[in-house]
Amino acid sequence: MQFEYSIEGGNFSRAGYASSEVKKKLKQLNVDLQVIKRVVVALYEAEVNVVAHAYNGRMEVEIDKDKIKLALVDSGPGIPDIDKAMEEGYSTATPEVREMGFGAGMGLPNIKKNVDVLTINSVVGKGTTVQMITYI
């Protein structure tokens, strides 16, 4: 099963909508509740990152019987130093993002904790692709 959602950069009132839809689908498919929680927490963090940092993006979701594959593909400024971005506490978030309760430099480390495979590819000035795989 495959589906896709678009994500609008800067639109905080809609941030989380796509992750919420994925959560509903996973529940319908009777995926284990602990697995759903791990997947959607990682997905929501990644969606908020796109809203916070990119101009626009999309969420690609692929569910099969043994794994959930998610990709967040954005057009945006990119990440100059991915290793630095993975450090807890490092953040380039704006004050607006911090007012939303994010931007503490915990997003990417928390994503890593919640998925089985995390791959980040980024080109400065073009955009970032975050791929996450969770085995069911």
């Binding site: 009132s13 989380g16 992750s19 959560k23 959607v40 927490v41 929501y44 939303m100 309760g101 994010f102």
Partner: peptide, 10 residues
Amino acid sequence: TLQTIRTAEM
């Protein structure tokens, strides 16, 4: 904020 509710949901 709306994100507080979203966070709780997730």
